[in-house]
């Protein structure tokens, strides 16, 4: 475990906690894309299939349970909580996320490390996570005033995979392991998708103005 990996995991944890905090305390999911949350729940469900078969460490198992639990509870909150669901803007959150799942599944069926169920599912989760933020970014462009917590959530979510890239670079030079090129490419694509968000997020922070993405 190197500092980049730990920072990445803590940033990821912070992102889900910020979102849970927002939804649980102010009972509002305004500006939050349910589609992205559903995609993330699917990402974790397909990536952590080995949670019962392969024990890596207590940390690893605990973090997997936290990410699974938080992503599914966020989906539940937005869909079924009698107060939160009223603040969900389904007319704006219209990204057809099935159009993301299908190509990712097809790509995983053709481009993977080895053709086993767990491996294809894991590869699918990598591809899906790379594009899972798209419905949320589209919604942010439509939502005129992005509240701070939602902006922080997206920023932290984008930063975690960026830190993982440093982790892979660090491990590449210090350990006799290798990172499969699929992991590299999916991680870099995912981080690049946040590039314009990061730019506008930094600009709004620097000029101390409310974050707004150009339509």
């Amino acid at each position: 475990m190197n500092i980049f990996r730990l920072a990445g995991d803590m940033t990821h944890l912070a992102s889900v906690l910020v979102l849970l905090l927002k939804i649980h305390t102010i009972k509002s999911c305004a500006g939050v894309s349910l589609k992205t949350q559903e995609l993330y729940a699917l990402v974790f469900a397909t990536r952590y299939l080995d949670i019962v078969t392969d024990f890596i460490s207590v940390y690893n198992t605990v973090m997997k349970l936290i990410f699974l639990g938080s992503s599914f509870s966020i989906v539940w909150y937005i869909r079924h909580h009698r107060v939160v669901r009223r603040s969900y803007d389904k007319d704006q959150d219209t990204f057809r996320h099935y159009l993301l799942m299908i190509p990712c599944m097809l790509l995983a069926l053709f481009v993977h490390e080895k053709f086993t169920f767990k491996e294809v599912m894991w590869t699918f989760s990598l591809y899906l996570e790379a594009v899972a933020i798209l419905p949320q970014l589209v919604l942010l462009q439509r939502t005129r005033n992005i509240d701070n917590l939602t902006g922080q959530y997206v920023f932290l979510l984008g930063a975690y995979r960026g830190l993982y890239i440093f982790n892979w670079i660090y491990r590449y030079f210090t350990e006799p392991h290798f990172v499969h090129w699929i992991t590299w490419i999916a991680g870099v694509v995912q981080t690049l998708l946040y590039a314009d968000f990061f730019y506008y997020y930094f600009e709004s922070w620097k000029n101390n103005v409310r974050l707004q993405l150009p339509a």
């Binding site: 990996r5 990821h12 350990e175 006799p176 392991h177 990172v179 992991t183």
Partner: peptide, 10 residues
């Protein structure tokens, strides 16, 4: 042996 490192990552 080259274990693929992703096994221990999240």
């Amino acid at each position: 042996d080259k274990m693929n490192m992703r096994k221990d990552e999240l």
